[in-house]
Nucleic acid binder design. Sequence first.
DNA 1: AATATATAGTTCAATGATTGAACAGTTAAA
DNA 2: TTTAACTGTTCAATCATTGAACTATATATT
Lengths: 150, 150
Amino acid sequence: MSQLSIKELVDRYIDLTFAVHKKGESLVKEQLQSELSNDQFYTLKYIYKTDNCTSTELAKVFDVKKSAITAVITKLWDQDLIERTRDQNDRRVVYLTLTEAGLELYKKTEERIYNLVESIITQFEEQEIKQFIDTYEKINNILTTLQEKQ
Amino acid sequence: MSQLSIKELVDRYIDLTFAVHKKGESLVKEQLQSELSNDQFYTLKYIYKTDNCTSTELAKVFDVKKSAITAVITKLWDQDLIERTRDQNDRRVVYLTLTEAGLELYKKTEERIYNLVESIITQFEEQEIKQFIDTYEKINNILTTLQEKQ
DNA sequence: AATATATAGTTCAATGATTGAACAGTTAAA
DNA sequence: TTTAACTGTTCAATCATTGAACTATATATT
């Protein structure tokens, strides 16, 4: 790989991550139709798929401080979308689960987001998009390693 | 592509875009060392590469309202990092350019960001990362089309 | 057992980003 | 000429995020 080529790749990568994220989040927001904020949606998504997750876990995954998690969680809790239940063995820990209303709202919004993303990835050959997600997964792992180092 | 397979791909795509962005921006922020906010960096980057760009253009590319752009721009301007010059033909338009201090600071921070990204993408075979960026580019185009529709 | 240290989560004030609406100034269209 | 459209700014309101202090609980050290 020549020096120039790497620089071009790096530059293109930086611009694309920025542009794709901005546009993507904007389209997601549109689909959420003010029923949930983007962060609230991703939080519900994580709680849905990870039964009995905790604030600390969310803070790690979302890479924000615990106090930011508490803010999101409390808003969802105020709307009766999630429950907080204390661990009986370690009473410092609070487990998060969806209420029925939370599950219902999540499922409804999830469908709209899925349709959006499906409309994008079905424009590719199966092979191309699978390869893309594969590499994306590796990048995610590399970033996780870098994160842990510092 | 079976129904299940698409659903898995969609789900993985959603999770990865979220996770990679959070971690990526966090690492970028670390490199900026409080000299610039992430938005300020990307704004300088865009002004650097696009000579004589305007607020409207930035608002479109960054997909935020013009008032948000004014806020970022004004902060950079307060620090003497950019100049605002009126178009003499259309006196509504204001062109944005880097000052010498702005160029210097941008170049310094750009190098750190480039090194970060380079350390990531050089962990791949040239072929794989080029293919990735290629597909990413296509996704960006699809999103742009979707954006323009609404 | 007593003490010190670490952890999970919350509160709160401060900061920063984003928006919408109203506005000034300018240009283009009817 | 009048009207409409456009560029950019201001400002108040909202929301997300942070750091520090705090409560309550658990673990480690002496």
